[in-house]
Design a binder for these strands. Structure first.
Lengths: 240, 240
DNA sequence: CCCAACGTCAACATAACTGTTGACATATGA
DNA sequence: TCATATGTCAACAGTTATGTTGACGTTGGG
């Protein structure tokens, strides 16, 4: 299914099939790449601020159109600049996505794990979790939604270091929530309606689905309201 | 070869994009188009069966990789055929998506509306709805998930007849579920935790989120189990 | 003033994808 | 047998995307 790279001569230097190996390492330096790295390492404030601006604009587009549906040209346009200029700040689209998503997604996991580790009763953990998650979603809008919407597998083919990392983050998140439910099942404070994981996914789903309809600025409800409502619903639904 | 719009001719109409008009009608006939239409209208059994095979293969890929992430070449490959052969059956990728999704999404709405129209008490409607939806998701896997995953806006730019239709379907679905909850709020059988819509979206979210983790064949739970569990959780959570 | 860091620009190379074409194969029934 | 419906193939055209390049501007500090 790789019929013809072309019938014309293909310069052997250029034809090195770089897409076979997964090579998360050693992308060929390239000139602008060196400038970028330099600027990044030097790390002036304005540089990083501009980087954040770019990430913010990208987040909006990723949220609206998805990763695949967002072109760097569109990001550049949103910033009223040229696409090539972005390369002064980021190496490629995936790195931009990473920039947008990484910190906030890790905060999210940390939140879930902190709640799990707290000393309060399981049911209260659940309530706190739901409330705090919704707060976080509201506070970090739309960045957290970008993260939720993308089914990592859709972003990249799945074997890169980055994608492994992201899967790990997701996994820890699911595990933390599941563990909270499990505690409740174990001490009898949560009814054994189904396995801890199924129940946990139900809760997560209710929260995560808000990405489809909740736009903080344009909503009659605050994220806090939603969190409180869903927490109440979940707790009443699960409590023994 | 290709540099049509390079420095030779600096097209002055650089800023006149042709994609402004939406033209859902009158795609130029084209030869294979005529053959396709002919075959379709004549409608032999084998023709439509092949069409269904194609839709099924496409559904798998759409589900795994999303609309944008799925190329017709990939669909052809999955069927061990050539991409061009697909054009004997479908006119373009969107039509294929439509083929996959349309019927089942309308069935889904019909289901929700039927439950709404049934004579049972609101809380029982809710329970029935959740159970039946999960059954439907299991039965129609992965087709319904394809539909859920795509945030129509990501599939097409939003002004076409098709996209209006799809938004309408979504809307009717949301409205039906909301109406069920509203009935419960009105007759006092459901606690006024939040607005009917917020609660409805919570329920829908819990169910729809299963698209991220539930694979019928590879799951220890049946769709029925999940439906029963979530129904129980929702009903207990909302009942007065 | 001048230089280096900062930032931008136009253009190119490469690739993937969609939609289309016209010729070619097969098989089926009249 | 032969015409027709059915189905496939290789190839191309047009579009859009990414990543890169090298030259060009701008600006503030020494």
């Amino acid at each position: 299914m790789r019929p013809e790279k072309s019938d014309t001569q293909l310069t052997p230097e250029h034809g090195v099939p770089a897409q076979v190996e997964v090579a998360d390492t050693a992308p060929p330096p390239s000139d602008i790449g060196r400038k970028r790295r330099l600027a990044f390492d030097k790390g002036s404030e304005s540089y990083h601020e501009r980087r954040r601006e770019i990430a913010k604009a990208a987040a909006q587009l990723f949220n609206q159109r998805g990763f695949k549906g967002t072109s760097l040209a569109a990001v550049a346009e949103a910033l009223a600049t040229d696409r090539a200029s972005l390369y002064y700040y980021i190496a490629n689209k995936r790195e931009l996505f990473d920039e947008v998503v990484r910190e906030v997604s890790e905060d999210n996991v940390a939140l879930a794990e902190a709640v799990l580790a707290s000393g309060i009763p399981p049911v209260e953990k659940l309530r706190t979790l739901v409330v705090e998650l919704m707060r976080s979603y509201g506070r970090n809008y739309p960045v957290l939604y970008v993260y939720i919407r993308e089914d990592l597998t859709h972003v990249e083919n799945g074997r890169t270091e980055w994608s492994r990392h992201m899967r790990g983050v997701n996994r820890r998140y699911d595990d933390a929530v599941t563990a909270i439910v499990q505690e409740g099942l174990d001490d009898g404070s949560i009814r054994p309606i189904a396995s801890a994981r199924v129940l946990a996914f139900g809760v997560i789903g209710m929260i995560n689905w808000t990405n489809r309809w909740f736009v903080p600025d344009r909503s009659p409800h605050s994220a806090d309201d939603l969190g409180a409502a869903y927490a109440e619903m979940v707790v009443a639904g699960l409590q023994a």
